[in-house]
């Protein structure tokens, strides 16, 4: 289980004015800037759960994943994963955890995947039989059997991602952090990766935290979502709950002579707002529908739950 209490993280960086003058000035004196990437967040995830962590760029998703995977230390607060403080980096914890980064290769670039797997087998102390079975199962499910002896750098992006997934799951982790696993993949590769994660989750029931900008990933894989905005959780619940909660709104797509735009209107004000639109604009087309989950989430990410 994952338990996070009052977790905060502040990053310190240096600022520099643009241009040559700024560069010269920075040689003598640099301005420090601190950014509160996580603001006292609380979270609990049970074994077997998969949650989708979503938010705009810089919302704090990756910072949370970095802390829970033990890469960075928090500034304050507590977090335990499987009973361990991740940043203490106990080998016993690291043997049960995996982090997959869509934008960062973890397998060795210049070697065939199988060479990396053999090294990982030793690092994670995976017994021979389990290792062979896992490689067989994962390679077959991900359809990469033919690529195991090719240098990783020579594989396509989709194939590389599948190899990364294999490498991360060889030791059957109990906790998996998936940081944008489908980024940059074409539609069929995205679907394949999603299907694989779904079947893996069903079979082995790890705790999985998925961050993704693709709503399709979230809709397909995560019954529970956590929406982050500027380092805080603005929503923690199920997808269906969010739709019910915000289902009191209608989405109006309007086309006038001058422009096209979409607005959200409370159901109770629908006729009033529509009349207002017709009286103030030369409306060419009007489409009234329930807002899509993407619209709702985008709106929450922009405005939070209360200011919508």
């Amino acid at each position: 289980m994952i338990k996070v209490t009052n977790l905060s993280k502040t990053f310190i960086s240096h600022t520099k004015e643009p241009g040559l003058k700024g560069s010269l000035k920075a040689l003598i004196k640099r301005e420090k800037k601190s950014k509160l990437a996580l603001k006292s967040v609380d979270l609990e995830i049970q074994q077997g759960e998969i949650i989708g962590l979503i938010g705009a760029n810089g919302a704090g998703k990756t910072t949370l994943v970095k802390i829970l995977s033990g890469i960075v230390h928090p500034t304050s607060g507590e977090a335990t994963v499987l009973g361990f403080k991740p940043w203490e980096r106990h080998n016993e914890y690291r043997r049960q955890m995996s982090l997959i980064m869509g934008q960062k290769a973890q397998v060795w670039w210049d070697l065939p995947a199988m060479d990396s797997f053999i090294l990982l087998k030793e690092i994670y102390q995976i017994p021979e039989k389990i290792f062979t079975d896992n490689v067989e199962f994962l390679a077959e499910t991900l359809m990469v059997k033919n690529h195991l002896t090719t240098q990783v750098r020579k594989l396509s992006l989709g194939e590389r991602m599948k190899i990364e997934l294999m490498a991360a799951l060889l030791h059957r982790p109990k906790v998996i952090f998936l940081d944008e696993p489908t980024i940059g993949l074409d539609l069929s590769a995205q679907r394949a990766v999603r299907e694989f994660i779904k079947s893996y989750q069903k079979e082995f029931k790890p705790i999985t935290i998925l961050t993704s900008h693709y709503m399709e990933d979230i809709k397909e894989l995560c019954p529970r979502i956590v929406i982050m905005k500027e380092g805080e959780f603005v929503y923690d619940g199920t997808l269906s709950q969010i739709q019910r909660l915000l289902g009191e709104e209608k989405s109006l797509s309007v086309t006038t002579k001058e422009k096209k735009f979409t607005i959200s209107v409370p159901r109770s004000e629908l006729s009033k707002k529509t009349a207002e639109l017709f009286s103030t604009n030369e409306v060419l087309d009007l489409n009234i529908q329930d807002p899509s989950i993407e619209d709702i989430i985008e709106s929450i990410m922009r405005n939070g739950m209360t200011n919508r």
Binding site: R89, M97, M101, I123
Partner: peptide
């Protein structure tokens, strides 16, 4: 470049 992460994740 952040590739150092792998050494913090692996149990070694």
């Amino acid at each position: 470049d952040g590739s150092f992460n792998r050494y913090l994740i692996y149990p070694i």
